[in-house]
Simulated scan of single mutants.
Amino acid sequence: MNCASIIVVSASTSTTTTSTRTALLAAAESLFLADGYDQVSVRAICAAAQANPAAVHYHFGSKDQLTVALLEERLAPLWADPLDRFDPACHRVADLVNTVVAPFVTIQGDPRGRLHLQLLSRFALSHPRAGWTQPWFRLERWSTLLVELVPGLSTEDARRRWSLAFALILAGFGGEHPLSAPSVDALSQFVVAGLGTPARTGPQTQS
């Protein structure tokens, strides 16, 4: 086999791999949104994608990691640009919370988007150790920003605050019905208050 043949075979293999991965994501998305994450098996995903029964494990490693890839691919672009431009030196905690909440408000107005939010909410809350790969799906990036916005706040406390904040946000937007504007305002204000509370400077006692 000459070099040209090797290049053609490699390109064909790469295209097939990409096509199978895309088909698996699309099949999983449709099944998850129709039947719910827990009711869908790996075998069903592979069958719907017309792929080998081992395809999910080959391309993603597990059903959980396929779900991570699906949610990151569908939702990460909605937050990435505004968050990448966020400058703690020029903004407040309220600005950061608004940046986080605004896409949720937009998504929940679309029936399919609302289903994505329900999947995100239920998966993230039930899989606290999911292997997220995109930076804005990981607490480290958020903790760094909050430490810069709240003087004296430790990284560990910032992580705890964000864990609680995201649990509340996901629970609110992951319901069956869209949140009303007053509910969104109340949720945002509550999250801002929790994230922005001044750091404790005195000795802390354990309960």
Rank of each mutant, 00 (worst) to 15 (best):
S126W: 10
C90Y: 11
F104C: 09
H127G: 11
N52C: 11
G172K: 03
H127M: 12
G152W: 00
Q50F: 13
V147T: 15
I107Y: 08
A193V: 00
V184M: 01
A69D: 14
S12M: 15
P77F: 07
R141Y: 07
A54T: 08
Y58N: 11
Q118I: 06
S10Q: 15
A27K: 03
K63D: 02
V8D: 13
G61W: 03
L70D: 01
S62E: 06
S163R: 10
T18C: 13
L139K: 12
T133D: 08
A48H: 00
L153K: 00
L149F: 04
S207L: 15
V105M: 07
Q39Y: 08
C46W: 05
A47Q: 04
R160E: 07
N2M: 11
W79R: 10
H57D: 10
A55K: 01
A4S: 13
Q204A: 09
T201C: 11
P111V: 10
P198M: 00
G61S: 04
A165P: 11
G131T: 11
I6T: 14
F86M: 04
L33I: 03
A102S: 07
A26S: 08
R21K: 14
T16N: 15
A47W: 02
P82Y: 11
S143C: 12
A49F: 06
R112H: 10
I169W: 02
F60V: 07
P182G: 02
R85N: 12
K63Q: 04
R21S: 13
L139T: 14
L119D: 01
R114I: 05
T20N: 12
L31E: 10
V100N: 07
S207R: 15
Y58A: 12
G175R: 06
L83R: 08
Q206C: 10
G175A: 07
V42Q: 12
Q50L: 14
A89C: 04
D157W: 08
R122H: 15
W79P: 00
A124Y: 06
R161T: 08
V192L: 04
R200T: 09
P82T: 06
A193T: 00
D35G: 04
V191G: 02
D185Q: 14
A4N: 13
V93C: 06
T99Y: 07
C90V: 12
T99N: 11
C46K: 03
V105T: 12
A76T: 02
A167D: 08
E156R: 08
A76G: 03
V191N: 03
S12E: 15
L75Y: 06
G36N: 05
L117T: 05
P103H: 11
E156W: 05
L145M: 13
T155W: 14
F86Y: 06
L164T: 13
V147E: 11
E148W: 04
A28S: 08
Q39T: 10
R43C: 05
G61F: 02
I45R: 00
V8A: 14
E176F: 11
A11N: 12
L187K: 03
P53T: 09
A28E: 06
L119G: 00
G194P: 05
V101D: 09
S154C: 05
R161L: 06
V184Q: 01
S5W: 13
T155V: 13
H91R: 10
P82M: 06
V191D: 05
L125D: 05
C3L: 12
S14I: 13
A11S: 13
